[in-house]
Design a binder for these strands. Structure first.
Lengths: 243, 243
DNA sequence: ATTTTTAATATGTTTGAACATACTCAAAGC
DNA sequence: GCTTTGAGTATGTTCAAACATATTAAAAAT
């Protein structure tokens, strides 16, 4: 049962709708996946316009709390995943340790021309050919992260290597290069359209963005990596010691 | 000069508006702070409804690319800030090193009763009195972060200490406790209403959220800290070595 | 039994209009 | 010169309606 809105309140109706929904979705049935009341039913029940109801709903959709599907309905969005920031254990290894089966939604290695950013990282000329690895990964419930890696041309990576195995294991065994230091940059960004559709989140959803350069044991840059994690469903943990 | 929308296109009009705006805001004048064309002017120019224009604009607003102010206008949002994740240097020290003057928008230390989360972190009973420090900090341009700290009661912090000085310096000198390890959890979340208004971002904006427990040299939890950074305007950097 | 078609469903898009409200700036008053 | 008031400005809110569209399920056809 949903409550009412107060048409005489100074709080805009769409904000009141938003509040009601935030309380509504706490109910176990919705947490478990039941469909929320239909827009038109909410509108009739609350005595307000369907578009005003939609306005309120879109707040929670924008926050990734709800997902909508035309012809189907609206429901509470799924739950979180976390990983250790400072672990070098592979993503799939860590997810397996948590009892989650990793799925590769996309796995593609292909030669590309280095753009200015990649060229700057590796100190090579823009346009230089090198291999880019693109992986869309997650669990049975859906994608969690999009990882893009570029490899320094000196590694001699061709794109024909077996990238289905753990990446650094492959680099050590087949390329003979030892990843040693990772220089990271972490921020929160809003998903633009292309990224949003690949990660199956709404446009503008918070994305945990990790950009890093991996150096080998000689201190030379070997991999440039960008990873986009679904924001709401993901967190890093790390222990930092004072020096 | 703005382009047109194609009413016969399969792409929804509001998406076309969004695209046009993404291109429009690249122009230097808008990057420098000029107001975008008014909604009603865009609507007339494009031959579509003002609400459809608003729908398109709200996409960029939701992403933090644009900011709107009633009675004033719409303009491109401001730029980023970053800090080292693994540095113990104070926020104000680091900003000063970057030539940015830190402003404290809010600084409040007060005794509170520990809620369940805080109690769980410190292994004390819920309801136990301890001191909570709340700081809203940023630059002259506006707030960047909201930091909330709770201190273990055994430290004997009263709330009367001088919190305007660097926190850990104060803890060492006046309390005699030495912060040594920080156990961190980092994620991207969407700003809820209260947080959004304090950080002056839109509701739902991506927020870089850092939750950590700081331990002293004896390995005992001394501080529980939550920091919310404006997502778009902030990033961490860190170097991680393989063990 | 399987495939195709159709209808129902619920969200998605767009509209024009009217009104509300926060903000700015100029004019008026002290 | 300073403060208050009022008008104008541009975004914010709400509406009811009509139509579009992706999805699902049932009915019809094979």
């Amino acid at each position: 049962m949903i409550h009412e809105v107060d048409p005489n309140s100074k709080v805009p109706l769409h904000n009141q709708v938003e509040r009601l929904l935030r309380m509504l979705i706490r109910q176990p049935e919705y947490q478990k996946g039941a469909f929320l009341p239909k827009e038109v039913d909410l509108a009739n029940q609350l005595g307000i316009s369907r578009n005003t109801v939609r306005h309120g709903i879109s707040k929670l959709v924008n926050e990734g709390l709800l997902v909508r599907k035309k012809g189907v309905g609206t429901k509470v969005a799924s739950r979180k995943v976390s990983t250790r920031l400072d672990h070098w254990i592979s993503f799939s290894g860590e997810m397996k340790a948590k009892g989650m089966e990793v799925a590769n939604y996309e796995l593609k290695a292909q030669p590309v021309a280095a753009d200015e950013e990649v060229a700057g990282v590796f100190h090579i000329s823009p346009g230089t050919r090198l291999v880019k690895l693109s992986r869309l990964r997650g669990t049975q419930e859906g994608p969690i992260l999009l990882s893009l890696s570029w490899f320094h041309p000196r590694l001699g990576i061709t794109g024909e290597e077996d990238f289905s195995q753990p990446l650094y294991q492959m680099l050590e065994k087949e390329i003979g290069v030892y990843p040693t230091v990772s220089r990271e940059e972490i921020s929160a960004i809003a998903a633009e359209k292309g990224l949003a559709s690949r990660l199956e989140v709404r446009e503008g959803a918070p994305i945990l963005f990790r950009k890093r350069v991996v150096f080998d044991s000689d201190g030379k840059a070997m991999e440039f990596n960008k990873v986009y994690y679904q924001g709401e469903g993901f967190s890093y943990s790390i222990d930092i010691e004072r020096k």
